[in-house]
């Protein structure tokens, strides 16, 4: 595709992959299995970013204690993302505000963007994976 970013020093394809997370964790498996795709995707040297919007922002809430529901707490994995060179984490401001949350409530540093700004960023992607 003409608008796919060229990779420096080679003709290997590098596409802009964006993972859009809009579902809360634990109630369904989507958040966990989306994270598993992200970790695998990191090995492909693509331009990867993650968006958290709607109830997806709850995936990043600090202080998750899952012992009582018998599920594994996978939230520490979000903190490990930077070890995989995944550093572009975006959270929609409107979604945070609607839930009474601030960036201080989140377990990783993120970039908070308003919906207008975020929609521009989403349009600039090549591959949108939503779970």
């Amino acid at each position: 595709m003409s608008d796919t970013q060229a990779n420096e020093g080679g003709d290997r394809k590098v596409k802009r992959f964006m993972f859009v997370n809009r579902k809360a964790p634990y109630g369904t498996i989507y958040a966990l299995e989306a994270l598993e795709v992200v970790l695998i995707g990191a090995a492909f040297d693509q331009d990867v970013s993650l968006v958290f919007a709607d109830d997806g922002v709850y995936q990043l809430k600090k202080g998750q204690q899952t012992k009582g529901i018998g599920q594994k707490n996978f939230s520490p994995t979000y903190r490990a993302l930077e070890d995989y060179d995944i550093e572009k984490l975006y959270v929609e401001r409107e979604s945070l505000q609607a839930r009474g949350l601030s960036p201080d409530d989140l377990l990783v540093p993120v970039r908070v963007l308003g919906s207008a700004e975020l929609s521009v960023l989403m349009d600039e992607q090549d591959v949108l994976l939503s779970f």
Binding site: K13, K15, F17, E36, I40, G41, A43, F44, L128
Partner: peptide, 15 residues
Amino acid sequence: GLGQLIQAGIEADRL
């Protein structure tokens, strides 16, 4: 593996 999904994203014109 999941790599096949990422590969599809890379190789296909649309996913």
